[in-house]
């Protein structure tokens, strides 16, 4: 087998791997995860998180909606303490 053929096979394998992984991820994100989200138990859990204003993937407190409510409540209490 020539170097050219070997190189061509290698790059074909790489492109094939990329296509394979992308296809797999597409199935997971476009089919499996939406289907799982539709399960009654999961749907209930997601609705509960929404109602609570919680994003479990928040990295920092400023990304957390519920924290705004907590801080607003604490600030209101502080203002009341300063000027009852």
């Amino acid at each position: 087998m020539s170097d050219h053929d070997h190189s061509f096979r290698k790059s074909s394998c790489r492109v094939g791997a990329l296509v394979g992984i992308v296809s797999l991820l597409s199935i997971v994100w476009l089919v499996i995860l939406p289907a799982y989200a539709r399960q009654p138990k999961m749907r209930q859990h997601l609705r509960w998180l929404d109602d609570q204003g919680i994003d479990p993937s928040a990295m920092y407190y400023t990304e957390l909606e519920v924290m705004e409510d907590i801080l607003a409540k604490q600030r209101l209490a502080e203002i009341r303490r300063k000027s009852p």
Partner: peptide, 24 residues
């Protein structure tokens, strides 16, 4: 993780959520 703290705290109720999120 901050978000996970809030999610776990909320399972225990509003008081726990508030304390957990504030400590975090």
């Amino acid at each position: 993780s901050t978000g996970a703290v809030a999610a776990a705290g909320a399972v225990l109720g509003d008081e726990a959520l508030e304390v957990a999120a504030t400590v975090k």
